[in-house]
Design a protein around this nucleic acid. Sequence first.
DNA 1: GCAAATTAATGATTTATTCAAG
DNA 2: CTTGAATAAATCATTAATTTGC
Lengths: 193, 193
Amino acid sequence: MSRAGSSRWCPTPQQLMMLEEMYRSGITNPNSTQIQHITSQLSLYGKIEGKNVFYWFQNHKARHRQKLRKKLTRQLQHHHQLLHYFDSPAAFRHHSYYNSGSPLLFPQAGIHHEAAKHSMNCTWKFNIPERTDKNKGMMRTYGSDWLMMVDVGPPLSSPPCYSMICRPPLKTLELFPLSASDLKEDTNINKDS
Amino acid sequence: MSRAGSSRWCPTPQQLMMLEEMYRSGITNPNSTQIQHITSQLSLYGKIEGKNVFYWFQNHKARHRQKLRKKLTRQLQHHHQLLHYFDSPAAFRHHSYYNSGSPLLFPQAGIHHEAAKHSMNCTWKFNIPERTDKNKGMMRTYGSDWLMMVDVGPPLSSPPCYSMICRPPLKTLELFPLSASDLKEDTNINKDS
DNA sequence: GCAAATTAATGATTTATTCAAG
DNA sequence: CTTGAATAAATCATTAATTTGC
């Protein structure tokens, strides 16, 4: 992985681990400042650009929620089957019906905050911008400031050139301010399925 | 319009005219290089940033197609009514049924290329990037190179600061290379309605 | 005429879908 | 089949048109 003339970014295991750790820690929709810092941190472990980070979080969030949705619908179907089951005559109810489904109803439910706590002893830090103008909006990459992401040119041309961040003023704030992304995620899931 | 402390961009009539002219000329999905040039051109007529241009084309394209879709479905309904009409007994068919609908079935059909021809005598020019890597992809703003769009800070702070383009090397190529966006648009329309 | 109230347009974000590399 | 990349659709939010009662 991380080949020279590859047409698309291929994350190194280190990078992937750190990205997943960040995601579990609550960073699901980093804004441009966050992306800049994540990028510069991860560039220590291999070639990476801001847009790779951007796309990774976008895809990971979408596919994570997709997975949750599927699991949820399976659960609902299961419930439905259970309802039918209990509607059926008692004579047919003597085989074990419960061992077929997934082991736990909502396996993800209580995990996030645990992970968030444990993730504090991670080695990297990155910056969190001050609360956005209206403190509800949590602007995304397109928000009031945009990323400068320059391609290192046509592939193969410049091997040691890590993507550089354009805006220098990077003051370090505290870690993991994200508050309640799980709830928001759940409501979103309930909204559209 | 174009007020000082406005939270969102408000295009001047000049800017709007030029954007619409570009759109009619076939620029429906400008890549970052095009956006940069369009932005710098339009900044002569008022405050504007690259992301405004980006969003404008995105929205305009979407809403234009939406309008076409609606028109199309209306036309289909009309056809449907006509079919019913011709299915009805001849005795009921003596009023003029054709004057109710829109005057032409596909008013947009043959216009684009005419407009493209006439638009050549427009006063502004802008650059077209070399054919993208794979010459089919027609990459968007996120494509191989990204825009540098810095906000001029919190509104009201910096009135005369037009958005500046980051990347200087702007070699001018020829005008309006777009080939057949209408067809593509039509197929897209047929795809999802 | 002219504000307050509603509605329509449209700029800005977010989410879903699709394409394609490996 | 997974997943990075790109596009399109849906949605939110703010501004301009406009209607309405005075």
